[in-house]
Simulated assay, not measured.
Amino acid sequence: MTEDRLSRVFAALADPTRRDIVARLAVGDATVGQLAAPYDVTVQAVSKHLKVLEDAGLVSRSKDAQRRPRHLEAEVFDLMTKWIERYRRQAEERFQRLDAVLAEMDGDEQEPTNRQGAAS
């Protein structure tokens, strides 16, 4: 279930317009009209983007009198961060092992030079 949700989140964020909408909602809630204002697209197009973000769990809507502001669901980013962090740690461990191997190889290459210098 988590992997499926994570796939929807990453797919939703694959579009640059949706990433921009998420960035704008990070500042505060906004209506569809407010979100559509800076784009050269219809309100309906922005509504479609918002629907994708809502289906992924990134955005929710509330009712405030006649307004229906959208709200960023920040806890979804915790799910993404945990997934990314797991693979970042694995990559870091591989780099540390590589550093150790390279340091060992560097030490092996320097030993004969030291022996020759000591023998002279």
Rank of each mutant, 00 (worst) to 15 (best):
M1G: 13
M1S: 12
T2F: 05
E3Q: 09
E3A: 11
D4H: 14
D4R: 14
R5H: 11
R8E: 08
R8S: 10
R8N: 05
V9S: 03
A11P: 06
A11C: 05
D15I: 09
P16R: 06
P16K: 02
T17M: 13
T17Y: 04
R18W: 02
R18S: 00
R18I: 03
I21Y: 01
I21R: 05
I21Q: 05
V22A: 05
R24L: 02
R24C: 00
L25E: 00
A26Q: 08
V27P: 01
D29N: 09
T31W: 04
G33D: 10
G33L: 02
Q34N: 05
Q34R: 06
Q34P: 00
L35S: 03
A36P: 00
A36S: 04
A37S: 08
P38D: 02
Y39E: 01
Y39H: 10
Y39T: 00
D40C: 02
T42K: 07
T42G: 11
V43F: 03
Q44T: 10
Q44S: 11
Q44C: 02
A45V: 09
A45R: 11
K48H: 07
K48L: 11
H49E: 14
H49C: 14
H49V: 04
L50Q: 00
L50T: 02
L50I: 05
K51Q: 08
V52H: 04
V52R: 10
L53M: 07
L53H: 04
L53Y: 07
E54W: 06
E54A: 14
E54G: 09
D55M: 05
D55V: 06
D55E: 08
D55C: 06
G57S: 08
G57Q: 03
L58P: 09
L58V: 03
V59I: 08
V59Q: 07
S60I: 07
S60Q: 05
S62G: 09
S62R: 11
K63Y: 04
A65P: 04
A65G: 13
Q66R: 14
R67H: 12
R67T: 06
R68N: 15
P69A: 03
R70P: 04
H71Q: 11
H71W: 07
L72R: 06
E75S: 15
V76M: 15
V76I: 15
V76G: 05
V76W: 08
F77Y: 10
F77N: 01
D78H: 04
M80T: 06
M80C: 15
T81L: 13
K82A: 12
W83S: 01
I84K: 09
I84L: 14
I84H: 12
I84F: 13
E85N: 08
E85H: 14
Y87W: 13
R88D: 02
R89D: 07
R89M: 05
Q90S: 11
A91H: 13
E92L: 15
E92M: 09
R94F: 14
R94V: 12
F95R: 15
F95H: 13
F95K: 13
F95S: 11
D99G: 07
A100S: 15
A100G: 03
V101F: 10
V101L: 15
E104Q: 15
D106I: 02
G107N: 15
D108E: 12
D108P: 06
Q110T: 12
Q110P: 01
E111V: 14
P112G: 02
T113L: 14
N114F: 11
R115F: 01
R115N: 01
Q116R: 15
Q116W: 11
G117M: 09
G117S: 03
G117P: 01
A118D: 08
A119S: 07
S120I: 11
